[in-house]
Design a protein around this nucleic acid. Sequence first.
DNA 1: CGAAAATTTGACATGACTCAACTGGAGTGG
DNA 2: CCACTCCAGTTGAGTCATGTCAAATTTTCG
Lengths: 193, 193
Amino acid sequence: MYDLLIKYFNRYTSRPLNGDEIDLIKSSFTPKKFRKKQYFLQEGELCKYAAFVIKGAMRRYRVDDKGEEHIVDLFLENWWANDRESVITKTPTAYFIDAWEDTEALVGKADFTILVQQVPVLNDWVVRLGERHDIAMRKRLNAAIDMSAEQRYTELEKMYPEFLQRFPQHIIASYLGINKVTLSRIRGQASKK
Amino acid sequence: MYDLLIKYFNRYTSRPLNGDEIDLIKSSFTPKKFRKKQYFLQEGELCKYAAFVIKGAMRRYRVDDKGEEHIVDLFLENWWANDRESVITKTPTAYFIDAWEDTEALVGKADFTILVQQVPVLNDWVVRLGERHDIAMRKRLNAAIDMSAEQRYTELEKMYPEFLQRFPQHIIASYLGINKVTLSRIRGQASKK
DNA sequence: CGAAAATTTGACATGACTCAACTGGAGTGG
DNA sequence: CCACTCCAGTTGAGTCATGTCAAATTTTCG
């Protein structure tokens, strides 16, 4: 159960974690199962926990005044589900996070600084996580601003092909900021070629 | 000259910087002037330096295959101009950064970790900078995906009114990912009300 | 099997872009 | 000080991409 998390950490640290450190990590995260559609976080709550997905799929979304869902992030195995803004600013979150598939996750404190104080090597990991996150988000921002709906979709096909396997089309559409009907047409066009 | 930088750092540290620390910081940054249109970074270079804007305005943009400029970031006083992706991945940058107004800046190593090793208190600052950056970018991403051109513009009016004072309309348009002609119309409409 | 959800398709509406002409101001040189 | 150019901004006409609404079809799942 914890193997995946340890392996994941080891990919980002300058040296492998030792036994004591692994024990500390194990004591900091609790396994939890989420049934499909079950909430991990709801609008208005403080985000106190972070979930590391072991098996399954989750999504983060916000709901606008008209009641429409806007998917903001999709999480698969080895991803962290949480709302960093709420954690940092200690303000209620504007998002929902729920399980899209039945999901097993390891749940721990959302504020990673505590963990890093106990296991200093993990500082490498926190830093790299931040970096990767930054780069990925910048890419999405550039795409959203400058590219057409079709380009964004083919970009996603390349970058995260797993998403297309695991999430239905209307979720992908929302994630990309494209109308689901439009995405259907784009795919129709593409398959003709 | 350095006062602004020190004051800026102090806003993000848990305690004010002491004399030795201030000296170290001063020795790490060199004042530099940029004439309007002068490059600080060009596509294909490694981003080795970061510029802290003391007075003036800079912009970061990329140039697409058709030779069109797409503004990615705008920097005024108290902002850092650099390309974090190039720094992190040690790969050539895809961006240009140049001065939009005649600009005075303090230029130092782009890799802040070196500075933080010398002046550990600045770790607070690096962390907070990352957090703020993250939140701001997320906001821009949500806006780009879900909001209309008009909404994005009025959002900018609220969030960064200085931009509208300091940069011409076509730069603002590019920054928002809106055609400059379209932005002109939006403003025309808005002023009628 | 039957109900609910997801996708596709058509007809139409609209927001945003393109192209082009025009206006007005800022700077330059004679 | 004027004539000239250059650049930003405005405006109109037409087009294209994407969104909306609604109905038909397919898939999923209890």
